[in-house]
Design a protein around this nucleic acid. Structure first.
Lengths: 316, 316
DNA sequence: GTGAAAGCGCTAACAC
DNA sequence: GTGTTAGCGCTTTCAC
């Protein structure tokens, strides 16, 4: 009671001091396992990810969750899976055996998922994914906001003929970014199809290919909004090959703001950042809050994507 | 005993079946906390990293350790720090309170460290770092081997005037890679200083700067060995500006094999890979082994760095 | 203001 | 082959 500060004035201040002194002298540290057995609180959060530790930028989600948890005296017990449902179920079971207080269920990119049945009564918050019906608390990036942000950068520089280079992969991010862009150019009365090019894969080569096709059209766009930084890297290469200078002849904006790419390109790439750290932190805090308030209504949170402004945009 | 398979033939097979059936029916899962309290084994490994979750490629170390641990029924309890010794000490204490069975102490890049005093009796394996005196079991990349490997690629293509572009930052990797290169070109009777250029920072811009200086010298090298992929990215840019084609006029090899860079450059960059996954896996397995054999002699392991061959090397 | 004891869910030793 | 019990290190209730 002296150590925990519990029991109010049940314990004399002089007695408490003696206890504290003895503890310090002995280097005493409470055994959290025994405490957990008794209190049924382990002060551990389970973190289940699908290849999150492996995915370069998604690691920031771990870090965000970690920091928020640690600040509250919690530690993260990690299980990384391949995303396979059976494996995820097993991971959750392994975590529950260890009596974790709650679960953070993370995906390496924004997607819609079903929550595994195993979770049941364990409090859970979804990280970078959400359920179709919104029945589980979750946080995902505000992709629409981010797309509007980079499009606004171009608009402010006077661009109207803004092309879009994207992947054909069927992911949430593609749909939202594409839809937002389409609305934007359509609002100018432009034909979106004429300004659109996609490639099977959202990587450098795909970006290069799509950009080559787009930039060779009779009325080429004055700016391109890329699905992601990797595709933007390909767009840079295509522009160089066609003798177009960035941002002189062509402005480029993108999404993801990957630290290994966006700031390293020449010129630096203006990109909407995926707020991985913030999402991780938000999810952990929200989960912690829910441990004390198990009946709180589920929340769907959209995390803003700040725009990293660099030198890839110039007046049209 | 039926569930754990312990107690040998103490329990009848028919009785065991009944127990198993009942457990399955109830969805019974043993409480690992209670078990840990009794057996003093939690089947959790502490993973202490300095910004490891944050560092893009180092995440593979976590994944390697995770997979090896999980295969043995262990889970990773993560603490990420800034690398500050006090913080690391506190992290270790937090882990010990939770009765973890052993500690993996990881750094985000290869370095020489002192082991925190707190560790004491807890079994520990160092990941991507080592002690000066070799008193603690550790695994680091075989940087010399990797450097020899990429230099051999160049030698096999007939290159002798091999330049080196590196960082001035005082890190293990710089020293080993530099020394290995110096020995290599000196063995050809060349003056290493004429083929050497460094920049304050090991990033793209630094690589560009150093390469510009190096490639403008009267007798320019026919190939460049770069400290890392980011600097290589700058070397590519410099070569392009000087009208030198890669690999036609200049071959380039590098170190790290970062997935976001080496395969994405055009042409693909030949690079020695940092075996992060393998190091993580080795460290966890070795730690697990040591839990049962606490008195085993410390081992210093060098993990080979495989060469990722791409298209940046051509005959001299 | 303080001492004593029960019990969290397990494992292992001890009976028979 | 099976039933019983102590105890891991804590927290909390009860008694005084």
């Amino acid at each position: 009671m002296a150590l925990n500060g519990t029991g109010g004035n049940r314990i004399g201040s002089e007695t408490r001091d003696r206890v504290l002194a003895a503890a310090a002298e002995l280097g005493y540290r409470p055994n959290t396992v025994a405490r957990g057995l008794r209190t049924r609180r382990t002060h551990m959060l389970g973190f289940v990810g699908d290849n999150v530790a492996t995915t370069p930028f998604a690691g920031q989600m771990i870090r965000g969750a970690h920091d928020a948890a640690r600040e509250a005296g919690f530690l993260l017990l990690m299980v990384d899976t391949t995303g396979d449902p059976d494996e995820t179920g097993e991971a959750i079971a392994a975590l529950q055996e260890r009596q974790i207080d709650g679960i953070l269920l993370a995906t390496m990119y924004h997607q819609v998922i079903d929550v595994p049945a195993e979770i049941k009564s364990t409090p859970v918050v979804l990280l970078d994914s959400r359920t179709a019906d919104g029945s589980v608390t979750s946080v995902v990036p505000d992709e629409r906001g981010g797309a509007l942000g980079v499009l606004a950068e171009l608009a402010a520089a006077g661009h109207r003929r803004i092309g879009h280079v994207t992947t054909a992969e069927d992911v949430e991010a593609r749909h939202i970014r594409l839809t937002t862009w389409r609305e934007h150019v359509t609002a100018y009365g432009l034909d979106a199809d004429e300004l659109f090019a996609e490639s099977p894969e959202g990587r450098t080569h795909g970006g290069y290919d799509a950009a080559m096709r787009l930039l060779r059209r009779p009325e080429r766009p004055t700016a391109i909004f890329c699905f992601n930084d990797r595709m933007a890297m390909g767009v840079y290469r295509a522009a160089a090959e066609l003798g177009l200078s960035i941002p002189g002849d062509l402005s480029v904006v993108s999404y993801d703001d990957q630290e290994l790419i966006a700031p390293e390109l020449a010129p630096g790439l203006t990109s909407a950042a995926l707020p991985h750290y913030e999402m991780g932190s938000w999810a952990a805090k929200e989960l912690l809050r829910r441990l004390d308030e198990p009946d709180a209504e589920p929340v769907q949170h959209l995390m803003p994507c700040p725009i990293a402004r660099r030198d890839s945009v110039a007046p049209a």
